[in-house]
Design a protein around this nucleic acid. Sequence first.
DNA 1: ACTGGCACTCGACTGTAACGAGTGCCAGTC
DNA 2: GACTGGCACTCGTTACAGTCGAGTGCCAGT
Lengths: 340, 340
Amino acid sequence: MGLDDRKLAVLRAIVEDYVSTQEPVGSKALVERHQLGVSPATVRNDMAVLEEEGYIRQPHTSAGRVPTDRGYRLFVDRLSRVKPLSPAERRAIERFLVGAVDLDDVVHRTVRLLAQLTRQVAVVQYPSLARSSVRHLELVPISTTRLMLVMIADTGRVEQRLVELPGPVSADDVTDVRRLVNEKLAGARLSDTPPLVQALVEEAPPELRPAMTTLSTVLLETLVERHEERIALAGTANLTRGGLLDFQGSLRPILEALEEEVVLLKLIGETEPSTTRVLIGDENEFDNLRAASVVSTGYGPGATIVGGLGVLGPTRMDYPGTIATVRAVARYVGELLAQN
Amino acid sequence: MGLDDRKLAVLRAIVEDYVSTQEPVGSKALVERHQLGVSPATVRNDMAVLEEEGYIRQPHTSAGRVPTDRGYRLFVDRLSRVKPLSPAERRAIERFLVGAVDLDDVVHRTVRLLAQLTRQVAVVQYPSLARSSVRHLELVPISTTRLMLVMIADTGRVEQRLVELPGPVSADDVTDVRRLVNEKLAGARLSDTPPLVQALVEEAPPELRPAMTTLSTVLLETLVERHEERIALAGTANLTRGGLLDFQGSLRPILEALEEEVVLLKLIGETEPSTTRVLIGDENEFDNLRAASVVSTGYGPGATIVGGLGVLGPTRMDYPGTIATVRAVARYVGELLAQN
DNA sequence: ACTGGCACTCGACTGTAACGAGTGCCAGTC
DNA sequence: GACTGGCACTCGTTACAGTCGAGTGCCAGT
């Protein structure tokens, strides 16, 4: 695969033109718009090679070339530099995020901001419980045999859950249980809680045993097993930009995929370190999304990562710009979280 | 507007055929599929009258007829009976809603169920705070000058909000404030709280005054002013059924409208009594949604109404079936809430 | 009041032709 | 050997004409 510099320049030019015009690009138009210093015929020869190598393809015999997923991949990896944000964009980010009053607010503002800046579908994962610590556990009696368990995490997340007790429990008992539970669990990482919860049951005074047992089950279920992830979504209307040319005419599979939290989590839930991840076309594992690309990254206060965020759009997207925006927004959100 | 019985029957037949075939219906096809007991020519005369009265129209000169918004309105008001649900549907509803562990769960299951049964976009409003009572208010110290305020409503809703205090407050003070606040507000309807909150500040011991003042501001803001409504959405992929024939080719305006909580609230936030509301085409106030219809109703435990739910689809929808499903789901959700 | 018949309209579909963007290839040039 | 100009070719797009048929409006007849 001997791709000399000029062939790479041709590929870059094709990607850039196609992204901005949305139309297959031909050899003549290419030399006109870019200073390649060679004739269309030469470009055609280069194109033939690029096509053979699988970086570009022709929609039909007598049309221009279009980048393949592989071509975009090469472009992203080797042919593009991350665009610095414009001052206007920086200002927009700051303006948008100040004044958020709670975590919900932060997440909603973030997802809308991201959708607006990238003009694509934005996805933000709430700070993952698995990466949070318990700040406080509250038990609110609903009736004599029912409690509302409210957990407040250090990331600002608040989760509630109804607990059905095996027998009636007095208000004093609830107070005792609350104190016990908080003594043991406050400050603990959620992923470390199972043994602590276990100990809780064993150390409980006999009269509180049954209640504590039930409670511990619910605790484990809520906090650990049922990996309670939350997701916010915005900008689905942006899918209709490019008037059905992207996504080969049907938004259906995309919209279906966007309704599945599991899918979104796999896409933006950060797996690797804090690097920005770009999934192009069928690089992602979902058939429904083989016409889409995803740019995502992790965010969190300081250097730690508590959740992921990203955008989803057509494979034909402005990768450098999108990557820059996603990164910048993630950084700002991290700073915001660090303040709380 | 003398519409005799046969003309009404013709209109009904047109609506039913058009809804099921999605194609303009002609006089000949009509007499074939329905036992009208008259010839196509007669039907044509009736159609001419119906068209003159604005109940149907021709997409183009030599095509069949299509109902207008006005035609659907007449159909809904006078020509249709609510379809009873099939046993399969009843079973689906029950199966879907048992096992919900908290309010979030109930709402999410409901909205997905509704989307699945009606095969349209479903919207469910969380129980409105304005119609809830305070069950408990919790104050969790984050730092010496910061509190997390958590409000638990009797409807199961839990709202949190960060409070920035004017000066440092001791743990004991927080306990005092918590007790005071709960004594005053527990059990109160949220809409009745403003005077209570006011009294709270006035009656507070002097050393707690500043903290209490800030807190009261936040309380009022959170609970009353910033009418904190929440909405869940599902089934947007259903918009793509009928392959762009509905919604005159572009989903854009619909998707945009669905992103605006305010819009959705106006659509399904119940205004009138507990009756089912049907908004057809441009009967709703949003230009973006003039190609859509909305069927909505209120729900709540027992006879009280705490929120709204409904579905949105093309004006060409199965109104009797949709209305029946929306009502049934609302009733089941109400029962579920009553149990808690 | 209803019906059969008939002329008419007009979108959908088909086939043909002209057009042009874009290609691959080849012979020629530096 | 690498690049270029030229040329034949492909094939989608557009325009136009013609046919078909579903559906209508109207009118005379029962």
